[in-house]
Design a binder for these strands. Structure first.
Lengths: 168, 168
DNA sequence: TCCAAACCCTTGGATGTCCTAGTATATTGC
DNA sequence: GCAATATACTAGGACATCCAAGGGTTTGGA
């Protein structure tokens, strides 16, 4: 890891905003920038843990999603909706997972437009092992205090609902 | 925007984790996944606002950073450290900003290895306009309650310090 | 003094994301 | 029943990020 900076760059940005008279939006700017940076840190940790398995986070997410589906299979469009990524991103991930023998495409029994993604036995095994690694090496040492985890879930849950992710 | 899902996919993932007995890491998993998704939503909003200016978020960040530097110029490696991205990402952003006439490269007066990035007058003007747009269209309507903004800044600030971003 | 180690930036390659457009299949409405 | 519309997936292109490697510049110890 690089040497820590002497000062928090986001706190500095906030001061700059306030100095320019944008006081009312300085705090939200700092919060949003902090989310960006935190995501970057977490993603790097996750990718580091997944690398030995030959997986990226995008591919892992798809694998994990399939492993929780009763039948171990999902239509592409369903996966796209649940993972909340663009359909082309799913196509890309499936291409690579298929090439690695972790999933396979099969035609939908009744809808000729739809392609089902199916977990292979190998894919199911790898998903299990990768999940165990993420659980112990990332989630169990998240770096967030327990009550802060609850706060994050609450705050970000409200945000995502307002953003139109889900209605519930 | 896509139709909202009937249920929160992250809450469902958390239930799946608990069902598999990973109860102790289910909450951090949910919090981290929520951060990933929130970042995605915010980035899309920001990119949408910046698009009319011909800017991406990465390029805007660099432009904004330069606009707050006294002299309007910074060494590449300094920018890389402050933005906390890989040096090649800065090279890439500078290439495009330079091509757009918003910044220019100049040699460091005393260190032949270093390249200074300098804001052009056009770059300075565009940075101002883009910041005004982001302030009014994103930061002023962040979708976070005021006290939640403070919570986020506190929680993520602690996280980033522990992750080694800064020592302060 | 001088050469090895450290540092700075760039190039090339891999991955992921999105958008636009195109092809194929279903569904809807007249 | 058939044409128009909607839906599903894929191909190609633009961007951003990182890593590995390479070439030029500085620094520091022998």
């Amino acid at each position: 890891m690089a040497t820590p900076l002497p000062r928090d760059p986001i706190a500095d940005a906030r001061l700059n905003w306030e100095r320019h008279g944008w006081t009312d939006v300085a705090a939200p700017m700092a919060a949003i920038t902090a989310i960006m940076r935190t995501q970057q840190i977490l993603l790097a940790r996750i990718e580091g843990v997944l690398k030995p398995f030959g997986l990226t986070f995008a591919r892992y997410e798809l694998l994990a999603l399939l492993s929780f589906a009763r039948s171990g299979a999902l239509p592409m469009n369903k996966a796209s909706a649940l993972l909340q990524v663009h359909p082309t991103s799913v196509t890309n991930a499936v291409d690579r997972l298929q090439q690695a023998g972790l999933v396979l495409r099969s035609p939908h029994p009744t809808d000729g437009r739809t392609t089902l993604i199916e977990l292979t036995q190998e894919g199911r095994t790898l998903a299990k092992r990768a999940t165990a690694a993420l659980n112990s090496e990332v989630f169990a040492q998240s770096g967030f205090a327990e009550q802060d985890v609850d706060q994050l879930i609450r705050i970000l849950g409200t945000f995502r609902r307002n953003a139109g992710d889900f209605s519930e």
